[in-house]
Design a binder for these strands. Sequence first.
DNA 1: TGTACATCAGTGAACGCGCGTTCACTGATGTAC
DNA 2: TGTACATCAGTGAACGCGCGTTCACTGATGTAC
Lengths: 218, 218
Amino acid sequence: MTSIMPSQSEGWIRMRYEKGHKDATRKRIIAVASQRFREEGVGSVGVATLMAEAGLTHGGFYSHFASKEDLVRDAMVDAQDRTLERVTQAARQGGGVEAIIRGYLNPAHRDNPGHGCVLACLLPELARHPASTRAALTERLERSVALIADYLPDADPTIRRDRAFSILGTLAGNLQLARAVSDPALSDRILASGITAALTLATTPIAPSPETASGDPS
Amino acid sequence: MTSIMPSQSEGWIRMRYEKGHKDATRKRIIAVASQRFREEGVGSVGVATLMAEAGLTHGGFYSHFASKEDLVRDAMVDAQDRTLERVTQAARQGGGVEAIIRGYLNPAHRDNPGHGCVLACLLPELARHPASTRAALTERLERSVALIADYLPDADPTIRRDRAFSILGTLAGNLQLARAVSDPALSDRILASGITAALTLATTPIAPSPETASGDPS
DNA sequence: TGTACATCAGTGAACGCGCGTTCACTGATGTAC
DNA sequence: TGTACATCAGTGAACGCGCGTTCACTGATGTAC
């Protein structure tokens, strides 16, 4: 109480763990969370089991994150970044938008949600999360859309962006159907017809422009 | 113990509540559940609050359903039936597939998930439910697909069914995006471009047939 | 008509459990002097 | 060199709470005779 604070020369402090230890722990928590959220849903994964899987006890969680919601945001962004990096490589290596589509509506992707696209696993659940989380989602969404848009034939970049959004929605929706359906053969058919649909959207000249949406709900 | 069972003439028993009372209660529970599951997600809605909203106490739940999962299945099926009935009317009254699409990717539908399509609210979550629940989902899915298929131009019914599946996936995925995104203007754009995409899929002659999906995950 | 009993939709207390979050503490490492 | 103290990543008990499910019970209504 009465003692004087140490001079703390040069503004940084040596640690009892090696440098970067805490950051490595944090990344480990995010990696575990990112996979399990996608596999089981955000609401079904508790902080305690998450920390145990990262080799820690649950009490330490709050020295890394202010709340579970903060982890949700960070884990979601991490997953989006990794997926985008992977997909970008596939596209840039000459596969273009067709490589993106075939890589997405794929049995391996369908059967490994924990390492796949966040949207197909969590989109409706994330829509019920706070605005801050949805804002982070939206920002990364724009990057994925920009990648797809790069490979669309339209001259107008606004049209390219719009089309890219609808393609991304088509990919996510069809993969969700393939995962939800109880008949494996049907699931495979859905993947195949989803590929056809997405390729159609990626190549067809623009359709008759719809008026701004309005009318009765369904 | 020693008394003889009543003759129970004609195999049915008069009730202390008016006839159909229990069935009405059951339908009320399903109606409440069906809306709240869609609004909040299955995992976020507890049996106790559900029963309270139906004007009952939670103890009586298990004289109506064997488990929460049974209610999930029944509420999901009920929602799908009601939605399909509504959409069928809109299509049959001359609107065809365009009425379905514009009714689906619509601000009113986006903003009222509790009375809208189950797929857009719960598809990834339902994919993690038991096979019995997913089988019930699949069965009703086929009916929705059959409705859409009725309005597609292809001669081959198998191609019509495949295309209808991909259109349904496109509708669900794009509505989910519109709901998740944090920017209202972007949300409206997504609805509009989703309409364009779905109309394209509903009218474009068949695209180059893709091989059966295989290859790397994304 | 009166009495004993059967039916059963709904009640409410209780079960064990996991949830997100808080907090006093440990113990390894560092600095000050 | 030795001692007192500061730092802080991680520990583990505890908080109040809601979860799905079970069960003995209530009380209104019916039947049997």
